[in-house]
Amino acid sequence: MSTQESQNTQTPIKDLEDITLTDLGDNSTFKANTLWQDSPALVLVVRRPGCQLCREEALRISSYRDLISDKLGVKMVAIVHENLDNEVEEFNKGYWNGLLYFDKEKSFFSQVGGGNIQYGGMLSFLKPSVWFNIGQNMKTGITGNMKGEGRILGGLYVIHQGSGGVEYQYREKVWGDHSPFDQVLTAVKKVSKKNDPVTEAVYQETLDKVKKGEIVFNKDLRSGCTGEM
C-alpha cells in the first residue's frame, strides 16, 4: 500500500510519463518518465521560485540530499512553470542546488491538482493557515520577492523506479503548505532500493529527529545565493 496523502486522488503514472520537460541549460526537451527510468525520484513541483515559502521547502528537502539522493539512491528533481529573469537560477543556486526543469505546459501542476491546475488567489491572505505558514517562515530567515505568477499551487511526488507508479503525492492547499517531511522521508525509504544496515540506521535517526521537529537547514547552500531575495 502506498503512503499516498489522503487529500487528493493519486495520479496514475501514465498521466505523468509523457509530460514534456525542458532542460534550461541547453533548451533540450525530454519526456518526464526518463526521470525515474533508472532510479526512483522525488519531484518537487515549485509554485514560484522567488517565493520565500517555496524556497523554504526546497531548502528543507535539499538539506537532506546526502540521505535522500546519495544514501537512499532517490533522484531529486525540481519542476518550475516559468522562467523569469534570473529567478530560476537564483532559486537553484541558493535553495535547491540540483536537477531543475521547466514545465512549459504546466502539466505537473495540473496532475498534482487532480487533473486541473489549482489556484490560490489573494483571498488566501485571509486564511489563518497562510499567516501561520508565513510566521513559521520568518523564523527561518529565508526571504523572497514578488516576481512571477504565484497563484498556481504546486506539490510533491515520490515515484518508484520504472513503471512502479506514484508512492506518495502531496498537493499544496494554500500558500506555504508543505508536504509533511516525515511522510516524505517514509515514502522515499519505501521506493529506495538501498537496504544496507548503515543506510537504515542513518535513515531511522534522521526520521526520529524530523518527527521531533528537529529540521536542519543547509546554511552553506544558502550562502551561495547573493543579492536581495
Rank of each mutant, 00 (worst) to 15 (best):
M146G: 05
S163F: 12
T29C: 06
L84E: 15
V88A: 04
L156H: 12
L156E: 14
W96L: 08
G25V: 08
G148D: 10
K93E: 14
N116M: 12
E200C: 01
I68Y: 02
R171L: 14
D70Q: 09
T20H: 13
P180G: 08
V45A: 11
S223R: 11
N27K: 15
S62W: 00
F217A: 11
T206K: 04
R222S: 07
F132P: 03
L16C: 09
T199G: 01
R60W: 09
Q183N: 14
V46Q: 09
T140G: 07
T11N: 01
I68F: 03
F125S: 13
S163I: 11
L84H: 11
A201W: 10
S110T: 10
N83M: 07
Q52P: 14
I134Y: 12
D70N: 11
G162N: 10
T199E: 00
Y101D: 00
K189P: 00
E89Q: 12
Q136I: 09
Y95C: 07
S6Q: 12
T11C: 03
G94L: 02
A187P: 07
S6K: 12
E56Q: 12
T34E: 15
A58P: 04
N218Y: 04
V210N: 06
T11Y: 00
D66K: 10
H81V: 01
M122F: 09
L72F: 01
V174G: 02
W36N: 02
W175Y: 15
Y203E: 01
N83W: 05
R47V: 11
K71G: 00
T20E: 15
Q10V: 05
L59D: 02
G94C: 02
A58V: 04
E82D: 15
T9D: 11
V77G: 07
D15I: 13
A201Y: 12
K127S: 13
T226A: 14
M146E: 12
G213T: 12
S223T: 08
G144L: 04
S129T: 14
N92E: 06
